[in-house]
Design a protein around this nucleic acid. Structure first.
Lengths: 207, 207
DNA sequence: CTATGTGAATTTATTCACAGCA
DNA sequence: TGCTGTGAATAAATTCACATAG
């Protein structure tokens, strides 16, 4: 693993920085200071400088950070400099939204396959992807896809995870609201919308 | 704010515990030890015990934790013991998925209103909620709704956030991939799917 | 004898303060 | 003078180890 001394919390923030840099770039800016950038992102200047210092040397004192160079570097660290092909399993409400989601392109991701069990959906084309029978999930091995997206009901999630691991996926994005068990070498990131929602009231001021 | 000494990281984990407790409850269990619970959730026993110790006293040495009592307590801490009514803004792909999402009920949330700008959508009924013209957003004030969900394109997000704050929302769940500025008293939680996806390759083993 | 609860130790992350460069 | 980069100080979270309760 490259750059292994970068703290996890910093890694978590890198995509946020990337998004901000992209925005600045689109505005035609070439440099940005940690202060200005912090205001844009709603964070602090020292946090940004500290984070960047872990893979250092992209700023010029008195001027700021070179947006192009920094973007390239963060992309390289996150391994977004090479494209990634993902397979979606489950084309229900959430799965369809994932298929249509424009944010994937931003980070060079492509949903290259979609699977479902429903015979009425199989064969249909959604967002340029043909929905396949889940029985074909084994074909992923030869299709240069290394990333699975689980968008099935909780009950089926572990089974699908097993199949994805079997098919050689190296990473899994799990939208099901449950913990899934995979071999240590496979990285799972779980997104549970309800989980984030559930801690919102705690922080909401009492009326 | 009640229980103010509970660490943020613990608060972040409470919904996960809640989900696990619900599962155990459905299995007909009455007690669970920190060890068994840790295995179920993919975490450590000491972490669980430490977390619970912040609002202490729900375990019996030699037996474990009382699932019912603990569930009630966590619900109370997170203020999920009272129902919450939410307003969804933006009924596109993602918004529709949010409307159909079954996970909200689990935490006593109800999507009680939905807004869009598209005249073709206004008036239609999706998942028992009638889509209203966004111009009516001001009516939320009198409708006992205190939580907004933003599922609109990034460009419109800040404007919608302003309108939601204006309409008296105390918390906002933001699905748009951008930072939004709100008064300090309003709590915002942002869920950006692409953001989580973007750090997956970093942790994926190189082929 | 099993499992909790918690002080103490360790690790990790954040914040500060300022030296040094353009 | 303005802004970066980083050691040092502080704060927070995790992990451990064990006393204590049922």
């Amino acid at each position: 693993m490259r750059y292994r001394k970068i703290p996890d919390e910093t890694v978590r923030r890198l995509p946020i920085y990337l998004r901000g840099l992209l925005f600045c770039s689109q505005q035609g800016q070439q440099n940005i200071s940690s202060n200005t950038f912090a205001d844009l992102l709603g964070t602090n200047a020292w946090q940004i400088r500290k984070d960047f210092s872990y893979f250092g040397g992209f700023g010029t004192p008195g001027v700021g950070y070179d947006i192009k160079k920094l973007t390239r570097e963060i992309n390289k660290i996150l391994r977004l400099d090479v494209g990634h092909r993902a397979a979606l399993v489950g084309v229900g409400n959430l799965g369809s939204a994932v298929l249509a989601y424009p944010g994937f392109k931003t980070y060079s991701f492509e949903i290259a396959a979609a699977f479902d069990t429903d015979p009425r959906k199989i064969g249909r084309k959604v967002n340029n992807v043909i929905i396949e029978d889940i029985a074909n999930i084994g074909t992923l091995k030869k299709r240069n896809i290394d990333l699975g997206i689980i968008a099935v009901p909780r009950k089926a999630a572990q089974e699908i995870a097993n199949a994805l691991v079997q098919a050689g996926m190296k990473g899994i994005l799990n939208f099901s609201s449950c913990y899934i068990v995979v071999p240590r070498k496979v990285k799972v990131i779980t997104i549970d919308i309800a989980m984030d929602l559930a801690r919102l009231p705690y922080y909401m001021p009492i009326r």
